[in-house]
Computed example of a mutant assay.
Amino acid sequence: MSEKVYQLNSDQIGVVNFAEPWFLAHFEIEGEIEPVQIFFPSLAEGIKKFAAFFEEHVINHWLAQGAEGEKKIQDLREYLLTTWFNPGVETMREAMFQTYGYPEFKEKTGKELIENGYDFLGVTIGHICLRFNKNHFYFNGLHVSGRTVDKMLAVNFWSKVKQEAMNDIGTTVFK
């Protein structure tokens, strides 16, 4: 495979500012699957879709392992309930009905929510990453990282490529 080297000018490098912070998530299961990253274009969308993404890339991977994977999921639930109950499970439950307006979270306990399905489990892990554990969550080879991004360093390759293409057109001979 050839290596591409770009000669950049300082005017091609800059910062892109987002009007609303984006949410970046990273999932890695040590030694088992390739790390996966996803950008959600807002924190609200990240909160809505993080759980489904977590379920697809972590929970389903473990469920495919059979009884061993189901044990990993149960161990994760126990870890959250014993180590991250408050803050963590309870603070997320409270935020879901106070901040985000979901009344069904007021009636159930944190334990019920963690034990019932995978949605609240995933959202709680994202919440722990962002609020309480310096953007990371570790559990027995599972590494989840979540962060909000309000700006990004970017390179404008287009203007240089466009200029080179325009220069090549001037020297191209058409037959």
Rank of each mutant, 00 (worst) to 15 (best):
E3H: 07
E3P: 05
L8H: 03
L8K: 05
L8Y: 03
N9E: 15
S10K: 14
V16G: 08
N17P: 10
F18E: 13
E20H: 11
E20P: 09
P21K: 12
W22A: 09
F23C: 13
L24I: 12
L24H: 14
E28R: 02
G31W: 10
E34S: 02
I38E: 08
P41G: 03
A44E: 15
E45Y: 15
K48M: 14
K49H: 11
A51I: 03
F54Y: 01
F54S: 00
E55H: 03
V58H: 01
I59G: 08
H61F: 12
H61Y: 08
W62A: 01
A64M: 13
Q65Y: 04
G66D: 02
G66V: 01
G69Q: 00
E70P: 05
K71Y: 03
I73H: 00
Q74D: 12
D75K: 01
T82N: 03
T82F: 01
T83K: 08
W84S: 00
W84G: 00
F85M: 02
N86P: 07
M96A: 03
F97I: 12
F97E: 08
T99K: 02
P103T: 08
T109G: 11
G110K: 13
N116R: 08
N116K: 10
G117M: 02
Y118F: 09
Y118T: 08
F120C: 04
L121Q: 00
G122Y: 09
V123Y: 07
G126S: 06
H127E: 01
H127C: 01
I128Q: 06
I128V: 11
C129D: 02
L130C: 14
N133F: 06
K134A: 14
H136K: 13
H136F: 09
H136C: 12
F139R: 02
F139A: 03
H143G: 08
V144D: 01
V144Q: 02
S145Y: 02
S145K: 04
G146H: 06
G146I: 04
V149T: 15
N156G: 06
W158Y: 12
K160C: 08
K162T: 04
K162M: 05
Q163W: 12
Q163M: 11
N167L: 12
N167Y: 07
D168A: 05
D168V: 05
D168R: 05
D168P: 00
I169G: 01
T171A: 11
F174S: 15
F174K: 15
K175R: 15
